[in-house]
Design a protein around this nucleic acid. Structure first.
Length: 426
DNA sequence: TCTGGGGTCCTAGGACCC
DNA sequence: TCTGGGGTCCTAGGACCC
């Protein structure tokens, strides 16, 4: 059996951990640059605020209903995510972190009572120790476990936030109530196509012939269908510890025109990528830089381009990465256009240890590695940009808007085994 | 004024090889 | 006039996820 833990309204819940006054109120958290709504409290959902809506489109509603609007703080969310995963990881086997607020794990029983005995205390424990409310589902496949946790979130809020979808005789009745587009793995396109065939619910989908699904759509759709029928398709893949691509991209707070400011942003993004590359102990063989104008401004000519460069040698040195990123940027930058976004992506990522066997290449790698290690260490202690490349100047006009951060944003307090209410007495 | 960021997997098609 | 068949590898782009 598979278990799935899912944090409820995760970013909003994080904000509430540090500001309990937000409890019971409609709250939304915004994406970078204060663009879109990316997390909503139940109260905000009840007001009809959809996921992903640009915030300016709900300005009236925000004012009328006194919706609390907060600029996202992803460092904070990652920290709380780690704490949630630590608690969960101490209770279950084979934890597979799927996203910042979700994780699958092994449930080594078939018996409902035993399963319940395992997972119900976990939800309580996470709430108690970290302050984040979570929902947990269990089922024979991951796709069904997702549905189970979804039911837990919607229907069990005031009880225990846990739901089991283990009895395959009872599953079809459940699936009849679930729109096919809500199933994990069925996106907008597939949903629209299925509806044309009169397939509206998850149950309808399970009734189609397997070969038809595969030939009409794909092997992915077929797998999803089989998972809904209770067949477990979770690959026994070892949990991939390292990313295969690493991207840093941001929309700018203002329109950027000059290459100096653009370079500043690209150096910052490349440095960020380099840090994350070293954190997972990898090397990159390919650097891509992407720049784009403003799609939404009809008064300005639109230009977008990208350039991918293969490195002479795989590296984890920020200086090497920056060097190639700037080369790439210069090759695609065009004067006379306005830019709203840039991105740096590292790909062709390999394990650092494989590289160290290559003794015969004349390279500066060992020295650069030591330097990077030292810089990372200093930055870990003194703040992320205590030591940075000079090219990453002080030109900050590209930096995104962050209008809705609470004024008081002190350093993270360390919680160790206390409940949230006690913590927030100060 | 104003529309996020970071991933994975699959597939089709081209280059190349024998 | 006419131009194989089968395979691998790589890449770009689409669909999907949170």
């Amino acid at each position: 059996m598979h278990g799935l833990m899912d944090c409820n309204n995760f970013f909003v819940s994080c904000e509430r951990v540090f500001n309990p006054a937000l409890e019971g109120k409609p709250v939304v958290v915004l994406s970078n640059n204060d663009g879109c709504v990316i997390s909503r409290s139940n109260e905000a959902k009840a007001l009809g605020i959809p996921m992903g809506i640009p915030v300016y489109q709900i300005r009236d509603l925000v004012r009328q209903q006194n919706v609390q609007v907060i600029s996202g703080n992803h460092t904070l969310y990652l920290d709380l995510s780690n704490r949630v995963m630590n608690v969960l990881g101490s209770e279950v086997e084979r934890l597979a972190i799927y996203s910042v607020d979700e994780a699958f794990f092994d449930v080594p029983f078939d018996d409902d009572e035993k399963i319940y005995g395992l997972i119900a205390p976990i939800a309580k424990k996470i709430k108690k120790y970290v302050g984040i409310p979570v929902s947990i589902g269990a089922a024979p496949s991951r796709t069904l476990a997702k549905i189970a946790s979804h039911i837990a979130k919607k229907e069990r809020v005031d009880t225990d936030n846990v739901y089991l979808l283990t009895d395959m005789k009872a599953v079809p009745e459940r699936l009849k109530k679930i729109p096919v587009g809500d199933v994990w793995g069925i996106g907008r396109r597939l949903d629209a196509s299925l509806k044309e065939y009169g397939i509206n619910t998850a149950y309808d989908f399970t009734q189609m012939s397997r070969t038809w699904v595969k030939s009409q759509y794909s092997i992915v759709a077929e797998r999803t269908q089989q998972e809904l029928l209770g067949h477990d398709y979770a690959q026994i893949t070892a949990v991939t510890e390292s990313k295969q691509t690493i991207t840093t991209s941001r929309s700018f707070g203002t329109t950027v025109r000059d290459i100096r400011t653009l370079s500043d942003a690209v150096v910052t993004f490349a440095s960020n990528c380099g840090k994350r590359l070293r954190d997972q102990n990898s090397l990159t063989g390919m650097v891509t830089v992407h720049i784009r104008g403003d799609m939404h401004n009809e008064n300005m000519p639109f230009y977008t381009n990208s350039c991918q460069l293969r490195l002479a040698m795989p590296t984890c040195s920020t200086m090497e990465i920056v060097k190639y990123a700037l080369l790439a940027l210069r090759s695609i930058y065009r004067e006379g256009y306005g830019y709203k976004k840039a991105a740096v992506t590292l790909s062709d990522i390999t394990d650092n240890r494989a590289m160290q066997l290559n003794l015969f290449e004349p390279t500066d790698e060992p020295r650069q590695k030591k330097l990077m290690k030292a810089i990372d260490k200093i930055n870990a202690h003194c703040g992320d940009t205590a030591v940075h490349l000079l090219a990453q100047g002080s030109a900050s006009t590209w930096k995104p808007h962050m209008t809705y951060r609470p004024a008081k944003q002190g350093p993270l307090r360390i919680y160790s085994g206390m409940t949230r209410k006690e913590d927030n007495n100060d």
